[in-house]
């Protein structure tokens, strides 16, 4: 069953899209950039956890996440109202306040989505306004056979957990703990190395927006390169 095509207006631009589909991917396809971190293309039900893709929808009370807003005929969307910009900026500042901001020694320097979003929002990568929150984790967790994880860089967007769950042979990445202590866990590594059932497809490292999760091999090569410099 193909959905009915309807016309919507996003920041004064008219777009035709299937009714009932989610707003964020439609905007992205139509060259209207809305910052986002937790969304992965093709997700059936995006978690809406990063809260960066907030927009205003006429007739709907309060800011709405575009990744879970269904398109309807005559929908009028603003992605850049003053309130939205401010909320996004605060969300961004909150995210970077937990980040160690060591761009220069980071494997994803220059390909980092956080850097791109900072540019788009015209926000510095180190917030002066908020104090830095140091999450109580080691710099590096490297006891997985194929992966390394740098928890202090992790924004807990959950993309890796999501893609890992779509890989055929059951999933191995999962969130553990709660709140600020939440961590992406390999299990296996912490509890029982013998149970690691990773297919080394590296899908998780490919979706990581910030280089918190990397292939062990590539990461070692990168560090070796850094040391040479």
């Amino acid at each position: 069953m193909s959905a009915e095509m309807v016309t919507i207006t996003v920041d004064d631009k008219e777009i035709t899209a299937p009714a009932g589909s989610y707003l964020l991917p439609v905007c992205l396809e139509n060259d209207i950039y809305i910052p986002n971190l937790c969304y992965v293309e093709g997700m059936e039900k995006p978690p809406a956890s990063c809260r960066l893709c907030l927009v205003e929808i006429e007739g709907v009370k309060g800011p709405q996440v575009s990744c879970r807003s269904e398109i309807f005929a005559g929908m009028v969307v603003k992605t850049n109202s003053e309130e939205i910009l401010k909320l996004r900026q605060i969300a961004f500042r909150l995210l970077v306040s937990t980040n160690d901001g060591s761009c220069r020694t980071c494997i994803s320097n220059r390909s980092c989505e956080l850097q791109q979003i900072a540019k788009f929002l015209k926000q510095p990568l180190k917030t002066k306004r908020l104090r830095h929150i140091d999450r109580d984790y080691p710099e590096l967790i490297d006891d997985h056979p194929y992966l390394v994880y740098e928890p202090k860089k992790c924004l807990l967007c959950g993309r890796c957990v999501h893609v890992c769950s779509t890989i055929e042979k059951g999933y191995k990445l999962s969130f553990a703990k709660r709140g600020m202590d939440t961590i992406v866990s390999f299990f296996g590594s912490e509890l029982d190395p013998a149970s690691v059932d990773c297919q080394d497809c590296f899908a998780c490292t490919e979706v990581c927006p910030v280089g918190s999760l990397s292939s062990k091999e590539k990461w070692k090569a990168f560090i070796a390169g850094l040391d040479k410099k």
Partner: peptide, 21 residues
Amino acid sequence: TQGESCGKCTFCRIGTRHLRE
């Protein structure tokens, strides 16, 4: 509340922590 935040969304997870700090 910051201790009971599930940690899923940015505002609650990090925002309430800043409030507490």
